[in-house]
């Protein structure tokens, strides 16, 4: 293991994190709801669920964020190195897994840990561990 000092960006990471935390606080204080992206999308997919307007508005905000961002400064680079089949398998796993676990990085990671939920801590430790493991297998054992 070595630390990648070329890409290490603690300042922008911290500022971005503060924005994410602020958005989660804004949603819970204003709407009384958890900013959990997988739960929000899952409920939008369920045509029988009520209370869809705020969810649609939140998702619209996520979609529009890069457009508003671009008005002020250049968008940060995005590199998607995975091949289409890998993206599809990853998407399926993320879709099923987050709904089964009732949360993802935002609902369990950001909001759950902010609430001090032991259940969310267990979720976060599990998905982080599996994330580390998946990268270890694909990069160092299979050599993707």
């Amino acid at each position: 293991m070595s630390v990648d000092l070329v890409h290490f960006s603690p300042f922008s990471a911290l500022v971005g994190g503060l924005l994410i935390g602020f958005a989660a606080a804004l949603l819970v204080l204003g709407n009384g709801r958890i900013a959990g992206i997988s739960g929000i999308i899952g409920s939008l997919l369920d045509t029988t669920s009520s209370d869809r307007a705020w969810r649609a508005a939140f998702v619209l905000g996520l979609f529009a964020a890069p457009w508003i961002f671009k008005l002020f400064t250049a968008l940060p680079p995005v590199t998607i190195a995975s091949s289409p089949p890998v993206l599809v398998v990853a998407g399926l796993l993320v879709g099923i897994g987050t709904r089964y676990a009732s949360g993802c990085t935002s609902g369990h990671g950001v909001c759950g840990l902010s609430r001090g939920s032991a259940r969310s801590l267990a979720a976060t430790v599990t998905f982080m561990a599996m994330g580390f493991f998946a990268v270890f297998v694909t990069r160092h054992l299979l050599g993707f």
């Binding site: 990853a90 993320v94 676990a101 990085t105 976060t124 998905f127 599996m130 994330g131 493991f133 998946a134």
Partner: peptide
């Protein structure tokens, strides 16, 4: 929550 998060983590890391 554990099995779901494990699946999610695998997809996230992929």
């Amino acid at each position: 929550v554990l099995a779901g998060s494990a699946m999610f983590g695998a997809g996230w890391g992929l």
